[in-house]
Amino acid sequence: MSEAILDIPLDSTKTAINPVEPYLRMDRMPHIWCPGCGIGTTVNCFARALESSGLNLDKVAIVSGIGCTGRVAGYANLDSFHTTHGRAIPFATGLKLSNPELQVVVYSGDGDLFAIGGNHFIHAARRNMDIKVICVNNLTYAMTGGQTGPATPTEVISATSPYGVFEPSFNLVQLAEAAGASYVARWTTYHVKQLSRSMEEVLHKKGFCFIEVLSPCPTLYQRRNKMGDGLDAMKFYKEVSKVRHGAPTSECALTRAGEIVVGKFVDRDRPDYLELLNRQMTATLGDRYATPEVTCSEG
């Protein structure tokens, strides 16, 4: 990716525009996220990935579910959809299939994508639907007050596990690989350059792509567990993260305080849903097959 570099003269920094601004709805700032929350950092990386992707951004759409990360769609200066809880992926599926020239990004949280929306995630991966899923994993339901989620590690305290979480959590990257994702990576908000590069990479990759980003939640996850503030989480990521590209995802489960394996784990080519559909219909119907023209005309 290209570094965001502005050639600015010394005296004009006060009027210079932040290079991410064209990619955001600046009329909606400040955003709702807490001080020290990492979601904004992931959005920052996403804006830079959009910039360096060279894509026509009129043809990039973003779809979010509900929750803190669910608000990302509302801040991206793209065609953007804030849908219902857990259903960003099936909405994105309809959007992509009706208008295949769109690059459709799903941007949502761990609770939204893997608890209420878990079924949609595995099926979209199975179909190799050509959508890019970015999951900001803050290990909790933050918007509703810090309840236990499908990615909350055992032994932490949450609003609904006041005596400690005892149920096992999902290893999101393993789940994604097993379900059939074409691309699987994990970073933390400490790894801004790598994260941005991964985001740019999936914007050019066909098929179901998944990036998990571990992100601080000082207000609702860390506070209850005496884990300090957002900066403490960032320092923790720096300390315990190990980059292991191609690591078996089965070895990448997260724990409360253990090592965080980051890197690109899966990058494979499988025919995506539309390719399979076209192939099957052409094989069985031959000339009778009409390539889908789904959008309706005006008047």
Partner: peptide, 21 residues
């Protein structure tokens, strides 16, 4: 150095770095 790492980390789009021409 104008590397803009501060800009990439900022969750609030409140800072950025740039190299001089």
């Amino acid at each position: 150095s104008g590397c803009d790492l501060c800009g990439m980390y900022c969750p609030d789009f409140a800072i950025f770095g740039a190299r001089h021409a």
